[in-house]
Design a protein around this nucleic acid. Structure first.
Lengths: 111, 111
DNA sequence: AACGTATATGCGTGTCAAGGAATATTTAAA
DNA sequence: TTTAAATATTCCTTGACACGCATATACGTT
């Protein structure tokens, strides 16, 4: 998922977390994050290509803001994993275990 | 977040999605994904180091299974972003806009 | 003990992407 | 129309890492 690749970079992760507080021009992020301007612009480019942010032009400044969709998609994907901690999972573990020991004890028990 | 870095790699993403169907030995994944065994082992190492999976030894085989915690953490993080699509957000956008035009029109309106 | 099976690890290589510095681009202001 | 401010882009270098191949390790079987 391209979303993950974009978010995996620590600085981009920071940028996104910053933008959660609201839309911001590039310069703001530069000072807040202590990065160099070109680097921030590049990261924003990646985030933009990944559909995580969009830009609004305001004179010389570009105001970047988060775009919900990709985050929403991420949550949808993650929902599949919720059953991991909502019990009744990993029961298959024991199941596979039985199948294996069965084979060992009586050889090919199935079919 | 290390979790994201681990998941960002496409093959590891596939592996995790495979493990969602239940714990599996390495060989299974090798055939299912069409990757070479050493590569799968390496990816599993990364996933393991990231806390996303754990191993259970079964004779020569190693049964890998998903570990809930990191996914849970990911969801907690993602929850902060839910307000993005649950309305009443990006209102700050307009707010900043006003501040800016205010300054232009009358200069320093605040304080 | 020897061999086979399943998995892990080490090493060399190529690729890709992040950082740095310089420069281009855009728009406002004088 | 020159200058300044804000941001984007280009080129270069370097480090990380995914892959392939070979090999090591662990365990079971004969």
């Amino acid at each position: 998922m391209e979303t993950l690749r974009a978010l995996a970079e620590p600085h981009r992760f920071q940028i996104v977390d910053l933008l959660l507080e609201g839309p911001r021009p590039v310069g703001d992020m530069v000072t807040q994050l202590g990065l160099r301007q070109p680097q921030v612009s590049k990261h924003l480019r990646v985030l933009s290509d990944a559909g995580l942010v969009d830009v609004r032009v305001d004179a010389q400044r570009r105001i970047y803001a988060l775009r919900p969709m990709r985050f929403q998609e991420l949550e949808v994907w993650l929902e599949k994993y919720r059953r991991l901690w909502e019990g009744n999972f990993q029961r298959l573990d024991a199941l596979l275990d039985e199948m294996k020991t069965d084979e060992k004890k009586h050889g090919r028990t199935k079919r």
